[in-house]
Design a binder for these strands. Sequence first.
DNA 1: TGTCCACTGGAAGGGAGGGCTT
DNA 2: AAGCCCTCCCTTCCAGTGGACA
Length: 418
Amino acid sequence: MTEPTTIFHRYLNAPHIFRKDREILRPSYLPEKLPHRENEIEQLASIMSTAMRGGRPSNVIIFGKTGTGKTAVIKYLAREVQRTEELVEKEVLDIPDMAFIYLNCEIVNTPYGILQNIGNRFIKDFSSMIPFTGWPTEKVYNMLVSKLDESPKIVIVVLDEIDKLVYNSGDDVLYYLAKINDDMKNSKLSIIGISNDLKFMEFLDPRVRSRLSEEKMVFPPYNASELKDILEERARLAFNPGTVDEGVTAVCAALAAQEHGDARRALDLLRVAGEIAERSGDRRVTANHVYAAKDKIELDCTAETIKTLPLQSKLVLMAIIMHGEQGRNRLTTGEVYSAYAELCDFVGTKPLTQRRITDLISELDMLGIINAKVKSFGRGGRTKEIQSSVSLKDAKRILMQDSDIKEIGDYRLKQTYL
DNA sequence: TGTCCACTGGAAGGGAGGGCTT
DNA sequence: AAGCCCTCCCTTCCAGTGGACA
């Protein structure tokens, strides 16, 4: 008699490459040690230790590209602060009250939101919390000052992606936070700003700029050998012994190092390579799985970009794809526009003007979905030469998932373009 | 050398929508 | 709730452009 099986058995019986917790390979996982960031941790710890002696730590601005460990280092220090506080509670240590507040300015990006979020951390009673909206910003600020100043404490506010805040709503809130120490008698507040964009400082008022950047730190990109160390450490924790070929971490590291030493990308490559190996029932992760992972991540990324395009951009892309399917790979703006207008007519939506479509074409170019170069054809005029940079088949398949344009699938462009 | 083509891309402004303030 | 303000998306207008061609 055969055992009863379900569709999942094949996967359940496959060799286990991962240990139980594959979260270890997610960029959000915080390991016990952060290799090759010892100096940065040391430097920040020394700045922050001022707080433990009752002083106000200098404001710090941290620069570094994505995946250089900025947020990881901050979260590492936040954990250390928490551990220190536990020692205070056990009366092993005697240091002033500290608060470590982490805000991501991609999510909280208005002056009101920042002040409200910080203020509410110090209000225990739910009914007297600062509302999401409705108060004048000045009132929120005054409330924040009075709550912070109730008892002596040192507050460290981390503003991750601070550039987003500045681009979204200027430097008003930074001005408030920079002057808050003048308005408090008992407590002190300092700011750690994190950014991957050096230019945003130019948009700050000179007074805010100098107050904010009392200390500056730059996190350099990891090189291939540093990335390899990071990966090996994580791989040891995440994979079962003997399931990862020698050289796999080196390939991941080398690929990620080509892209400005992004540790996040390196970890993604390793995790996805492991998943591909496990899914195909292989016993070991090999370099080939890493290359497959690279393709998968790139395709997923393109798919995500295309899926989230607004309808009009999707129609423009569809127009380019349809030309491509009919053998025309190099198009002018005029040709794309005519086909786009035809598709708009087909789906029953009003076409935008050609001027606007010029902008949408430039956006698609910036996203890397198409390639558009301005070219002059002499008497034929000056226009953009446009071609798709992604596989027509893949792009169309992704576009067809949009219910608004699904029915375009078998449509053939009416016009003949010479 | 001047003309002409088919746009490009900057500027200004309208209007819808959403958040802030009173 | 209503007014104000800002942002985003879009239109309209238009000067400017590179290069083939007469």
